[in-house]
Design a protein around this nucleic acid. Structure first.
Lengths: 232, 232
DNA sequence: TTCACTTATTGTATATTTTACAATATATTA
DNA sequence: TAATATATTGTAAAATATACAATAAGTGAA
């Protein structure tokens, strides 16, 4: 048979995952970067990523890589795009797939481990150049994030557990890069299942706003019975 | 340095692309399949896919693979999800990324070539089992297609060059699995830039409908000047 | 040629959602 | 207690969506 696989030629690639971790702090969306302590790109800032082990499933590998390099655990990772320019990695053919997560920066304790020398939260629109094609990966994945914010209730993964409606509005204003009307924003989000807490904002020099939290249980039920679809 | 890449261990994977080609015919969305003339899964139906060459960029590889196996040329391919279960390929670790296209079945001349023994257009919801994890890939990519139909004017890639508004409506009814009101459908699509042709349907036993075609040039301009966003 | 028939196409009235902007409420601080 | 600052709610107009009816224009048989 003429179409047998030439093993030497084809089974010589490697495959990596890049974990783009987004957080929200000080009114801006930030991304978690690591400083590389190894070649190539030694000393350069990069997205958290590494090679997948031969027997690893992709979702597990993404979690493992994230934990290995930053000790971050227990975050939900979503698959993004795949990048495979032949020369994107100087040491060989490495195709990579982006995975991304939305986290609460203050609840996460990211510590540099393994070959990561340092970690830092960098505002997404301040990021200049990164190792490899990581800037392209970041840009593409940030678009994925914004799309997801529009069609799935993932904003609550970025906001604190208890948040004010204004904080929620500001997050969308930042992501959409557009001002929104307060009154109309509240009308729009009314159908979203949220718990109106009995607590108020503290340490503000004016009337404190009420605190809310996302009612994920009720949300799941509504989705189940097909009586609600999130849309912003 | 302890973190050097172990080449033997990591640079031993292969990478493939699977081209999920969708068409629309006889009121249903169909997918182009090939019958495998090689092991593994010899004689089984499969999605059009093959290994990426060492120096190929992914979009080029997708076009090349599609042409190699079916002689199909000149279609726009969109990236879909990536699949990497460790045991998905019996001959080694092969990670694969889906690419998908929307085509006019009657304008495409798909011919089995290389190790493809036969090609066939199969209605998507009739597809039972396929080689590898191709059924999963098909299901996932079909969801991608439906999402794209909603937010981008790709329905015109499936419809004939000249189509009736009813044909367009029926496509959406099929994809959404829901009945739509004729009058309201027309109101909804009014802002979509289409050319009202001077031609009418032929060979029908009743009043023939008018024919339309998508005005892609005007669409590009509208998008450029930010004065229109497609939404169905 | 006419008329019944079938589908295409348009219209209308109502309900719902979005938008713009104003008014009121409530906590803080001086 | 009043001034201030932001939270929260309300209202009216505009824009969209929905349901359903009416009219138009071909085909094909009498």
């Amino acid at each position: 048979m003429a179409y047998k696989i030439e093993f030497g030629k084809f089974f010589s690639y490697s495959f990596s995952l890049d974990c783009v971790i987004f957080g929200y702090e000080e009114g801006q969306i930030k991304v978690l970067l690591i400083k590389r302590a190894i070649e190539p790109y030694l000393g350069k800032w990069a997205i958290i990523g590494d090679l997948v082990y031969p027997d690893e499933d992709l979702p597990n590998a993404a979690s493992r890589i994230l934990a290995d390099l930053t000790t971050i655990d227990n975050v939900i990772l979503h698959q993004g795009s795949t990048f495979g320019k032949p020369d994107r990695h100087p040491q060989g053919r490495v195709i990579t797939t982006a995975y991304f997560a939305l986290v609460r920066i203050d609840e996460i304790n990211a510590q540099a481990e393994s070959w990561a020398e340092e970690v830092c939260w960098m505002p997404v629109n301040k990021v200049k150049d990164l190792a490899f094609d990581h800037k392209d990966i970041l840009d593409s994945t940030y678009e994925d994030l914004k799309r997801k914010l529009r069609y799935e209730p993932v904003c609550f993964d970025l906001l604190p557990e208890k948040f004010t409606l204004n904080e929620m509005q500001q997050l969308y204003e930042y992501a959409y890069n557009a001002e929104l009307d307060k009154a109309n924003f509240r009308k729009k989000i009314r159908p979203i299942p949220m718990i109106h807490l009995k607590e108020k904002q503290t340490n503000v020099k004016h009337r404190p706003a009420n605190l809310y939290s996302f009612d994920s249980e009720r949300y799941e039920n509504l989705v189940e019975e097909d009586s609600y679809t999130f849309k912003m």
